[in-house]
Each structure stands twice: as structure tokens, then as C-alpha cells.
């Protein structure tokens, strides 16, 4: 049933986007996508099951949704027509923050799950002590997705907040000599640390081949180290998001917001990957791809190249390509 709901949700998103790109049907397209979204959310709340277990904490979920709905509705209704783009940027930042928080919670979940079970010995008595078997303690693939979601979500969140501040005049253009170089260094540092983190996790595990048992069990210092790495990446991403948007001029803001929008889409898709959730995946990738194209179209409409707009940080562009591919 939930699969069907998610399928309908995905189709409404595609249809909605399609209709949004035509003036005659745009408004209806928006409503259709909104309907699909409501369906997908309700379906998740009431029908989602993991290992036969339904979701709990309904009070918290409904409370959160109620608060978000009231604030979101009022903010969107009250905002002046001229302030629309900054509102879009703010909401986009909220989505990025949401993806970021999901990554943080899931990372803690992953780490706590294993620190609380210090006794790994039972693996040795597992069913497959003949042949070859690899048991990983921290699944590297999962960690990779979590970290990717964290980086993209955080950059999008920090960048959108700065874009919002710049559009409503709270934050002024700010750039200094060597900023582009600094941005690229920070980005490389993020990529480097993230690769190291995932590599480190992939080194742990238990390998059983024949009767030989090879163990590489993580100890206390391992967990301290990966936690340190994870939060360093988090802080560097905030830093990158801020300095990525800061030097860009006010008139170019819509282009940047559109780019950040597609970032958040990719971050949402990471969540879809993580939970094997098709509607998040389709919605996220759809926005990631359409948003990237839209960014390019917007640049073209302004007779400028994307590189020209993003002169502050050319590297940011590459993240989308890499992220969308992942």
C-alpha cells in the first residue's frame, strides 16, 4: 500500500514540475504536487514499517507538523510580494537543515549502536564460519550517504540563510583577497576528511574465510576519532556554505538560490538512499536535476555564465555534479 502511495507521490511530483513549466497549467501543477506530498506524508506516518514495527512518537510528529504548518502558512501568507525570493531562500534553508539534522541523528544512531555492544565475539559463532564472509562494523556505504547528506544539506542551509540575509539587507556583500582560494581549500578539506572517514570505517570489520578469522574491531579511540571527523566536516560545511554565498552580488541571488535549491534536492535524495525510500529519492533527484538546469537557464536569461556568477567559488559547481551522480 505504502509503495503505491509513494508511486503516486513520485508521479505527482513529475507531473507537477511539468505543469509548472507552462503558464496555463502552472497553478494546478503546484496543487497536484502538494496533494502528492500530503499523501506521501500521511502514508509515511500511518503505514511506514521497519522490520514489522510501526513508527512511534506520534505526539512529537504531529506536534512538529502542526507547529511547522502554522508558522509556514502564516509566514508564506504574510510575506510581501517583493520579499518572495528571500522567503523561498529561507524555506530552502529549512529543507537543507532538515537533511542535515537527519544525517546527524543517523550518524549518532550508527555509532551508538556499536559502542553499546562492546562484545563482538558472537560474530565468531555466526552461521557462516565456512566460506568467506565479511561483516562490517560500521557500514561504509551507509556512512558515505550520511556524510554526503550532511555536507550538502549543511552547505545548502548555511548558504540559504546567508542568501536570505543578503536579500533582505541584513547581510552586506563581503569579500576579501584570496577568498576563492580559501573556499577551494575548505572544499578540498571537506572532501578529504569525508573520504578519510569513510575509508577508515571500511577498514573495520570481521572477515571469516575458511577457518581463519580476521578481526579488526573498532575500539574507543576509533569512535572518538570518527566523531571528531564527522563534526569537523559539519563545521567546515557551515563555513563553506557561508563563504560560498557571501561574495556573490545581490542581483545574482536568484541564481544562487536556485543552485542551493538543487543542492537541497540532492540532500533529500541522500535520505531516500539511506532509507531506501523511493519517493524521497525521486523527488530529491528530480529537483536536483531540474534545479541545476533551471540555474543554467536563469544564467542564460541574464546573459551570463554560471561560472561568472559563481566567481567566488567555482568549486561549488562541481559538488552538484558529483552529488547528483552519487
Amino acid at each position: 500500500m505504502l509503495t503505491l502511495i509513494y508511486l503516486i507521490g513520485s508521479v505527482t511530483f513529475i507531473l507537477g514540475l511539468k505543469m509548472l513549466s507552462n503558464p496555463a497549467t502552472a497553478r494546478r501543477g503546484n496543487l497536484i504536487a502538494a496533494g502528492g506530498m500530503v499523501l506521501a506524508i500521511l502514508g509515511t506516518i500511518f503505514l511506514y514499517e521497519e522490520n514489522g514495527e510501526k513508527l512511534g512518537n506520534y505526539g512529537w510528529i504531529f506536534g512538529g507538523i502542526a507547529i511547522g504548518t502554522v508558522i509556514g502558512f502564516l509566514a508564506a501568507k504574510k510575506v510581501k510580494m517583493t520579499a518572495m525570493p528571500e522567503m523561498v531562500s529561507l524555506f530552502n534553508g529549512m529543507g537543507g537543515a532538515c537533511a542535515m539534522l537527519i544525517s546527524i541523528v543517523e550518524f549518532n544512531h550508527l555509532v551508538n549502536l556499536h559502542t553499546s555492544h562492546v562484545d563482538y565475539e558472537w560474530f565468531a559463532f555466526g552461521p557462516a564460519n565456512r566460506g568467506s564472509l565479511v561483516i562490517s562494523i560500521i557500514p561504509a556505504g551507509q556512512l558515505f550517504i550520511i556524510v554526503l547528506g550532511l555536507i550538502i544539506g549543511t552547505v545548502s542551509f548555511a548558504g540559504s540563510i546567508v542568501a536570505w540575509g543578503k536579500l533582505n539587507g541584513k547581510i552586506r556583500d563581503f569579500s576579501f583577497k584570496g577568498q576563492q582560494v580559501l573556499n577551494i581549500i575548505v572544499l578540498l578539506l571537506i572532501v578529504g576528511l569525508a573520504s578519510y572517514l569513510v575509508w577508515k570505517a571500511s577498514q573495520t570489520g570481521i572477515e571469516i574465510s575458511g577457518f581463519a578469522l580476521e578481526k579488526n574491531l573498532p575500539d574507543e579511540s576509533f569512535f572518538t576519532e570518527i566523531k571528531f571527523l564527522f563534526y569537523s566536516i559539519f563545521i567546515l560545511s557551515i563555513f563553506y556554505g557561508v563563504f560560498f554565498v557571501l561574495p556573490i552580488g545581490g542581483a545574482d541571488m536568484p541564481v544562487v538560490i536556485s543552485l542551493l535549491n538543487s543542492f537541497t534536492g540532492v540532500a533529500a535524495a541522500c535520505g531516500g538512499f539511506l532509507y531506501d525510500n523511493k519517493v524521497m529519492l525521486t523527488g530529491g533527484i528530480l529537483v536536483g536535476a531540474a534545479g541545476t538546469l533551471l540555474t543554467i537557464l536563469m544564467c542564460k536569461a541574464m546573459n551570463r555564465s554560471l561560472a561568472n556568477v559563481l566567481i567566488g567559488s567555482f568549486g561549488g559547481n562541481k559538488t552538484t555534479a558529483g552529488g547528483a551522480g552519487g
Binding site: 501543477g29 535549491n261 538543487s262
Partner: peptide
Amino acid sequence: LMSGANAIHGV
């Protein structure tokens, strides 16, 4: 369209 896409990635 940007705004609509923004809402959709709210998934």
C-alpha cells in the same frame, strides 16, 4: 518553478 521545486524537495 524554482519555488515549486523548492517545495517538492520538502520530501
